[in-house]
Design a protein around this nucleic acid. Structure first.
Length: 590
RNA sequence: GCGCCGGUGGUCUAGUGGUAGGACCUGAGCCUUCCAAGCUCAUGGCCCGGGUUCAAAUCCCGGCCGGCGCACCA
């Protein structure tokens, strides 16, 4: 992934990705996908959509990348994404100031404190640099927010942020999305889109960037009722790296099935297990090497505070394990947050099997009395009576026996209401169900990292007659183009015939490239480098002018990985290539 | 953000205080009946700004970008 890496060199040279705005010196952490990369990325997204949206019966949305500030107040990103950095005056190292405080004092949750307060604490406790031990008192703490900030409309009265994850765009629309799902759990909502994080130090090519594409599924479930179809993935095998192995001296990967890890309690939640199985199949299908892939459980310290359990999909790239995806059980954290901060309900009405009858204390205050008596506070008094009835119905019974008045407190002031003006009753009501806040299961994937991993894992170098042959062994389904069409030579009508074939194949919906420049071998090599799985060559036999007249109307189809060739009739060529691309047949079936 | 190292055509690189050469790639032509063959020609470059100097791509300073290490990665 670093400079001098042959995969990065190839990616730049052949148009997979390049650093953006190079004409202006470049900008760190932003990449442009070139023609090959954009096609590859689109194909990867299409297969994800097929697997996680269509096959799962979920619905896809497309939310804005800019959201107003309250959304991120509710989600916790406004505070949680704010880092406090303090720089050591001696050694120059920067550290998280809140971590320094929490690690060296009894103070907890320094993260949520004001900057000034943390500065005071650092001075009070005479805290020192974790690296060199120099005193940090008096050092200014710098605020660094990972979110890109902007303004919505003129002026700065309406701040907005570029979303740091796509998920919030789904959560905030939950009330309407539940309606679209006819208020039936479970339902899943997917989104593929850009997210933005103003990283301090982007590194390692496409693996750590400031703008990236996420593919996320938010599955809303009833935690008491809904279960995944685990049977459909129980035989999927994958390497698992649970906490116990990570903490062991000689911990190792456990190669086993999804069914087993769930049975053994290694993966606690059935939904997480289910999506690990789905995701493993998908990563394999797009060309991630399963010998360099694993599912790693989050260590206790890594877990977000609301997450019961979390697993990452990881791939080995250049000797490092990088995170490709996270699978988290988020509980009702997200929906509860938005319910608390917004004016909407983020619940689903869940019907009981049988309606139940309950006794419920109610009040129906006489507003024609309360109004004149309490003026502007009348409504608040009525509310207070209402909640008192729910909380402590005995207060009303006592009032009847006692002095005949009910006492409530509104903003510190006591009000007394005659019991006969309260309208207190114990009602028998029939309830057919209750409002529940669904729990969220979230598989969240990084598309750019998947793309980079696929490039890295599919790259191969062969020696052929002393020459290096570079090949991207991309699965046909995701390759930027499915087929290259060449005339054996650019004369004698071969090129014209080849162009006719290009048109036919494109009409059939295939991604085709045409090339008649230079020797045929060079053209094969060009396609090898960008991962085109098949090449079609028009030769003299095609025209009926070769040694074997029976081959008229046929072309050679060459397979990238073996460089073997088979003759195929032009009449069935588009069907054959489509079947090869979709995996309906293999090259050996020809 | 800190430290060290670096930045020459699309890619990989040589090089000097007097404005640059190669290889590959790419394009045109010739040749060529299946895996980067050959010949001819052509396109294309010293990261940006400032300083020193008669003269800077070269030396110095700053910036930008990259690699590595540290920190960060909710």
């Amino acid at each position: 992934m670093s400079e001098g890496n042959p995969v990065v060199e190839l990616a730049k040279r052949r148009g997979f990705f390049l650093q953006s705005a190079g004409a202006y010196g470049g900008v760190s952490g932003f990449y442009t996908f070139g023609p090959e990369g954009a096609a590859l990325k689109q194909n990867i997204e299409d297969t994800w959509r097929e697997r996680f949206t269509i096959q799962e019966g979920n619905m896809e949305v497309d939310a804005p990348t800019v959201m107003p500030e309250p959304v991120f107040e509710a989600s916790g990103h406004l505070d949680g994404f704010d880092d406090m950095l303090v720089e050591c005056p001696e050694c120059g190292d920067s550290h998280r100031a809140d971590h320094v405080v929490e690690d060296n004092t009894d103070i907890e949750d320094a993260e949520s404190m004001a900057i000034e307060r943390v500065e005071e604490i650092v001075a009070e406790y005479e805290l020192t640099c974790p690296t060199c031990g120099a005193g940090l008192a008096g050092q200014a703490i710098q605020q660094f927010n990972l979110m890109f900030e902007t303004n919505i409309g003129p002026g700065s009265s309406s701040p907005g942020y570029l979303r740091p994850e796509t998920a919030q765009g789904i959560f905030v629309e939950f009330p309407q999305l539940a309606e679209y799902a006819r208020n039936q759990l479970p339902f899943g909502v997917t989104q593929i889109g850009r997210a933005y994080r103003n990283e301090i130090s982007p590194r390692k090519s496409l693996l750590r960037v400031r703008e990236f594409t996420q593919a996320e599924l938010e599955l809303f479930i009833d935690p008491e009722e809904d279960e995944p179809d685990l049977e459909s993935v129980e035989d999927v095998t994958a390497p698992f790296y649970p906490v116990s192995e990570q903490e062991a001296e000689d911990g190792e990967l456990i190669e086993t099935t999804v069914g087993e890890v769930f049975e053994d309690g290694i993966v606690d939640d059935p939904w997480i297990a289910y999506y690990l199985g789905i995701a493993k199949r998908w990563y394999e299908s797009i060309g991630v090497d399963m010998d360099r892939f694993r599912f790693r459980q989050h260590l206790p310290g890594e877990l977000a505070h609301y997450a019961a359990d979390c697993w990452d999909a990881e791939a080995e790239v250049d000797g490092d394990w990088i995170e490709l995806a996270g699978f988290a059980y988020r509980g009702d954290y997200d929906l509860s947050k938005h319910a608390a901060h917004s004016d909407e309900e983020f619940t689903i009405f869940k019907q009981y099997d049988e309606p139940i009858t309950v006794e419920r204390p109610t009040v129906d205050p006489d507003m024609s009395y309360l109004g004149p008596e309490f003026g502007g506070d009348a409504a608040a008094v009525a509310d207070a009576l209402d909640s008192l009835a729910e909380r402590d119905p005995d207060a009303f019974r006592d009032a009847q026996a006692d002095d005949g008045v009910v006492r409530v407190e509104v903003e510190g002031q006591e009000y007394t209401v005659p019991i006969e003006k309260v309208g207190f009753e114990i009602e028998e009501v029939t309830e057919s169900g209750e409002h529940i806040t669904p729990h969220v299961v979230e598989p969240s994937l990084g598309i750019d990292r998947a793309l980079y991993t696929v490039l890295d894992h599919s790259y191969r170098e062969d020696e052929v007659d002393g020459e290096t042959r570079r090949v991207l062994e991309l699965p046909p389904e995701v390759a930027p183009r499915t087929v290259g069409v060449f005339p054996l030579m650019d004369r004698d009508g071969l090129a014209e015939r080849a162009r006719e074939i290009v048109d036919r194949l494109r009409d059939a919906g295939l991604a085709v490239t045409y090339d008649d420049s230079g020797a045929i071998g060079r053209r094969y090599r060009r396609q090898d480098e960008v991962g085109t799985p098949f090449c079609v060559t028009v030769d003299y036999e095609t025209l009926g002018e070769g040694d074997d007249p029976s081959l008229e109307g046929t072309v050679t189809v060459r397979e990238r990985d073996t460089t073997e060739q088979r003759r195929v009739a032009i009449s069935g060529l588009s069907e054959t290539l489509t079947a090869l691309r979709d995996g309906a047949i293999t090259f050996d079936d020809l």
